[in-house]
Amino acid sequence: MDFTPLTEALASKSYEKIADICDNLLLQAAAEGVAYQDQWPYAIHLLGHFYVDDINSARFLWKSIPSEIKESQLELAAAWKIVQKLWTRDYGGVHEAIREFDWSQEVQGFVAAFSELYTKRMFQLLLSAYSTISIQDTALFLGMNEDDATNYVLQQGWDLDPASRMLTVKKQTTVTQQKLDASKLQRLTEYVFHLEH
């Protein structure tokens, strides 16, 4: 089986493409009747699905993996543990599951990129869900120690009340630029001109 597209995507850090590449290769192998199960990169395939936040596909992939492979591939089991934490919304547990396994050289960069992406997703969740939050809870969500989490959010403009150890969430203002449509401006000018005369 030719895994060149997958190897190239990993090398170029195009992690958002991994799930689709693996899905297509799996379909191709099935269509050609190729025996692939012993050499299939299940851990990478699973990581690919949750990198793009497709937990349902990750769960379906897990169900299709033969039991003997699930039991024999430790990295696959570690990736599945992350999926379980994501599924149950155990936000801190996701970070723990990432840190507690010694990932292979092949997927270290992929897992690190997912960890960074997941931290950003959690930060956006905190922005949308909270107006104030404790340092302890912030650290749990972001997968950091309390000092690092505090520094991270303070750099994003949040405020800290040292007495209560509470953080005040500062909503990020989104600046929308309105495009000036020449035809609308022309109609408005004609309308104003008509009113004046």
Rank of each mutant, 00 (worst) to 15 (best):
E100L: 15
G93L: 05
G93F: 03
I98Y: 09
T88R: 11
V83L: 07
Y91Q: 04
W80C: 06
H95T: 12
Q105E: 14
V107S: 10
A97F: 12
L74N: 13
R89Q: 15
Q73V: 10
E106W: 05
G93V: 00
D102V: 07
R89G: 00
D90W: 02
E100A: 14
E100I: 09
Q105R: 10
Y91N: 07
E96S: 12
K81F: 11
F101H: 13
G109L: 03
E75P: 08
W103A: 01
E100S: 15
L76S: 10
E106L: 10
I82A: 07
A77S: 15
A77Y: 07
R89S: 14
A78K: 05
W103G: 04
Q73C: 11
R89L: 13
E71I: 03
K81Y: 11
R99P: 04
S104T: 10
L76H: 05
I82H: 05
D90P: 05
L86P: 05
H95Q: 09
K81E: 15
S104C: 01
W80I: 07
S104L: 06
I98F: 08
L74V: 07
A79C: 11
F101P: 02
I98N: 07
E100H: 13
L86V: 08
A97E: 13
Q84A: 13
D102E: 10
Y91C: 05
G93Y: 05
D90Q: 09
W103M: 00
F101G: 06
Q73H: 14
G93W: 04
L74W: 07
R99G: 15
T88A: 14
V83W: 03
L76W: 03
V83C: 12
E96N: 13
F101N: 06
R89A: 14
K85H: 14
T88F: 09
I82K: 03
L86H: 03
R99D: 15
A77V: 04
H95F: 15
A78L: 08
V94C: 12
T88K: 10
Y91T: 01
V107F: 02
E106P: 01
Q108P: 00
G93A: 05
Q105P: 00
W87E: 14
S104R: 06
L76V: 01
D102G: 07
W80E: 11
E106F: 01
I98R: 08
E75N: 04
A77H: 08
D90H: 10
L74C: 07
E100Y: 11
L74A: 15
G92L: 02
V94D: 08
S72L: 10
G109P: 02
E100T: 12
G92T: 04
A79Q: 04
V94Q: 07
V107P: 00
Q105S: 12
G92F: 00
G92P: 06
Q105Y: 12
F101K: 11
Q84M: 14
L74Y: 12
G93H: 06
W103K: 01
W80S: 09
K81T: 08
V94E: 08
V107Y: 03
W103P: 02
D102I: 06
I98M: 11
A79V: 02
